[in-house]
Design a protein around this nucleic acid. Structure first.
Lengths: 201, 201
DNA sequence: TTCATTTAATGACTATTGGTCATTAAATAT
DNA sequence: ATATTTAATGACCAATAGTCATTAAATGAA
């Protein structure tokens, strides 16, 4: 049984090494310009081997998305653990989302640019789930306006924040040039607006 | 001079016919699965001719994005013309955005999935410009909270609304399945929340 | 140790396709 | 009628995603 276990472990390591290589190539060149051959070279494996571990180029990218979601979800969980009230936790998630872009811009862009099949979802690590719990907590502890529907509110917060960060970060220079506004300022303005719209009292 | 004019006109028509064909193929198959050869067949032209009118596959897609932006901007302009106050016009733009998805889901998806070069912008038809003007108008006529920064507010509205519609529409079934909420309800809930956050008094 | 069997890895090969360009056809001017 | 300019063609090339028959390595049995 030890042999079988070791084999499984080695398979997992090889898989991880392939995703590492895919990340380097995809992040350096973008999805279209990256080639499977280059990823194979980078992993010091033949192309055929890559196809033993993954279904193809798309599947390699999906593995990166999975990593990104896991990292983001974990970051959210750590961030909320540092706070007491529901609304503080919601704020912490927002801050952490911005922070995630700063520390992992490639993962952020990958998430933004990824459009999987309509039916496809990554339930295992879902940042939205964390947010839903926290909004519910805030309504329960009275720090978020009662009367708000927690589920709808959380989904709205998630969608709108993602949308704003997307245009703020991907069109950063364009916004500065065209409208003479600092995207950073827009984001903190948004946080204030939203905070006051959520908080109780 | 008449001959030259006619030639120009015919060039324009051919260009339009090519974009029509590109639209049919891209919308039926998606960007990756669509082939330039098929678009050429669909336009009843040789592939070489397509490359006389466009720089390549990306450029064909960009032409569709241009159309989509033009259509959306025009729809916004028509929508605001039917209302008097600033806040009503903001609401009208929101409604029109949803309506745009219903009437032209393919254009909506194309806009959502399109990620051009960082520097690239389509100034000619910019829906955000319309929104900025209208927010300014609402602050001037007192129907939108004074004290709001019109430019930042408009950019925030644009980004967050786009983000919410994106997840609401592209993850429609997933949201319904996972959370048992109707995306339509979420959107109208969002509109109400945002309206009350904007309106004066 | 030796040989058979299972498992893992390879890279030459194929099919597809984005893009090019020398050639042909058509329109226009002389 | 002929020359010249403009438009269109499709055979061709290069790049590359994905396959598969072959080889190599690891494991187990004798």
């Amino acid at each position: 049984m030890t042999i079988e276990e070791r084999r499984q472990r080695e398979k997992e390591q090889r898989r991880t090494a392939i995703v590492d290589a895919a990340e380097r190539v995809f992040f350096a060149k973008g999805f279209d310009q990256a080639t499977v051959d280059e990823i194979a070279d980078c992993a010091e494996l033949s192309k055929g081997t890559l196809y033993l571990y993954f279904d193809g180029k798309d599947d390699l990218y999906r593995a990166i998305i999975f990593r990104a979601l896991k990292l983001l979800t974990t970051a959210f969980e750590k961030a909320i653990a540092r706070h007491e009230t529901g609304i503080e936790k919601v704020w912490a998630i927002g801050t952490e989302y911005v922070n995630f872009y700063r520390e992992h811009p490639d993962y952020f862009d990958a998430l933004i640019h990824y459009h999987g099949q309509k039916t496809e979802t990554f339930y295992e690590h879902d940042p939205l789930k964390v947010l839903i719990d926290v909004v519910q907590e805030g309504i329960a502890d009275g720090t978020i306006r009662s009367g708000l529907d927690p589920l709808k509110t959380a989904i709205i917060l998630w969608g709108q924040t993602t949308g704003l960060l997307q245009i703020a970060f991907t069109m950063c220079e364009a916004i500065r040039d065209a409208y003479r506004v600092d995207p950073e300022e827009i984001i903190s303005y948004y946080f204030d607006l939203t905070y006051h719209n959520l908080k109780a009292g």
